[in-house]
Structures are given as C-alpha cells and as structure tokens.
Amino acid sequence: MESRILRPTLAIYSGIFLLFLYGPMIVLAILSFQSADGGPQFPIREWSTYWYQHLLGLAETSRVSQLPVGDSLIRSIILAFMTTVVSTILGVMSAEAFRTKFKGSGPAFYLIILGMMVPGVLVGLGMALLSNTLGISRAWFGTSFVLHVVYTYPFAFLVLLAIFNRFDRTVEEASMSLGVSPAQTFRRVTFPIIFPGVLSAMLFSFTLSYDEFSRTLFTAGRELTLPLAIYGTFSVEIYPNLFAFGVLTTLFSFTLLVIYGLLMKRFTSKASRFKGQEEG
C-alpha cells in the first residue's frame, strides 16, 4: 500500500514545513537574549536580558538608541481599536444585508472584497494624493484609519457572512411571532447568537490593523504607528533590541488570542446548539 510510505513521508515533510515556519522566529527569540556587547547574530556571547531592559528604557546609556516604541505603541492600539469598532459594525450591517436577495448583490460583494485585495501601497498612495489635493493633512487617526477600515472591513464581512450562512432564520421568526419588533429581535436573538462571529471579526480586524503598515506608510503623517517605527529601523543597522521587541509583541498577540479563546469558549458553551433528540 502506497500510503504506508506516503503517510510517514508527508508527516515528516509537514514537520520540516513547521520548522520552516517557526525557525526564524525561534532563532530571533534566542538571539534576543544576546549580551550587551553582542551583535544580531551567533554566537551568543553571554545569555542576558540586557536588550529587554534596553527596549524598556531601563538600561544605562548605550551605543544603540532606544526603539521609539512608547508613543507609537499607544497610537497603534488606539488605531486598531477604532478600526475594529468601525469595521465590525460595517461588517455586521453588510452581512445582514446580504441575507436578502437583491439586484446588484454580486458587484456589491466584489466591491467590498476588493478592499482586502488592493495592495496597501496603492490605496496608500491614492489616499496621500487625494489628501494632498484636497488639502487635508495626513494623520494616523484620519487618512490611515479610513484605509485600515477599507482593509479589515472585508474580513469582518466575510466572517459574518459565513456565520449568517449557517444561521437558522426560524429563531428570528419565532421572536417576531411573540410580538417582538425586528430591532429588538436583532438585539435579543440575532446578535447574541452571532456573537462568536462578531468576536472573530473583531479579532481579525484588530490584529490586521495593529500590524498594518503598507497602508499607513504614506498616510500617517508625522506621528508614527508601531509598524512604521519598526520599518524605520530597517534601513539602518539592526540590533538585538529589535529581536526583544519581536518577542514581546508576539507575546502581546498571544495574550489577545488567549483572551479571544476564553471569550469564545464561554459563549459557545453557553449557546451550544441543539444536539439530537432524546426521549424525555
């Protein structure tokens, strides 16, 4: 049987693939514990947390300037939060609209999906040109923000569209037959049931926006977001403080992921769907 050879081969291959995915991050994490006089490469001269202290501004003055992460981190979080709220609301509204068949739904679908397809550098350029022409000053909370929504709204929309595809419409009809208005039905029945989807849409929007920089590059103006601050260090020599930063921001993302997982678990266990019928 071929699968006797094929299966282990594929399993080993998949293991190597995971190594390929994770290898660079693992190396980066190891190197983040380089000593103060060490460079961004092997060998590790001495294990230390020097670069973490350096990143947080706790290290004595050094030859390497501190990464400008403080303010930009706060900006990025606020921006991601704003983007999450707006794109999730737009996503819910649009996905709800697509439950009704209407003429022109095809083009409308593709117009929304285009937002995740158009390269960031293109819309970024377009937005920069537009704001120059109209005399609007570029800022992360204005020109960058609207572009972030252009990017994340389609993701939120798709997630919710998938949720609504599996949604049992009769529970809404049941609510209305009890005399509850459509608006209240949405609030009391539809929304709680689709909430896991809303949560996923929010997670998507937040992480995409938090990490987004090609759309921000031309539109953020003077004040940098976090990815822009990192991008700024690309052109100069890199130091292990960047690696330490990489480790910390990854941990931050995982924290988000864990919070999401816990919320999800709470909601799915509460709202577990009907499971077959037993005798009563």
């Binding site: 737009l90 996503g91 509204m93 649009s94 709800e96 609209a97 697509f98 439950r99 009704t100 209407f102 409308a108 117009l111 929304i112 285009l114 937002g115 158009v118 293109l122 819309v123 350029l125 377009g126 937005m127 040109l129 537009l130 022409t133 609207v146 572009l147 929504v149 252009v150 709204y153 929309f157």
Partner: peptide, 28 residues
Amino acid sequence: KDRRRAITLLTPGLLWMALFMVLPMIMV
C-alpha cells in the same frame, strides 16, 4: 421593504469603499 432595508444596511459600507478605496485609486 426588504430590499430597501438591505440597501440601507449596505450603503455605509459601500460608501466607505467608494470614498476611501475607489476614489483614491481614481486619483492615482
């Protein structure tokens, strides 16, 4: 009525895309 409701729900999103995606692209 259903169609009108769908279009009302969809308008803000499409408007957003028109203003902040299509218009910039035309500008390019």
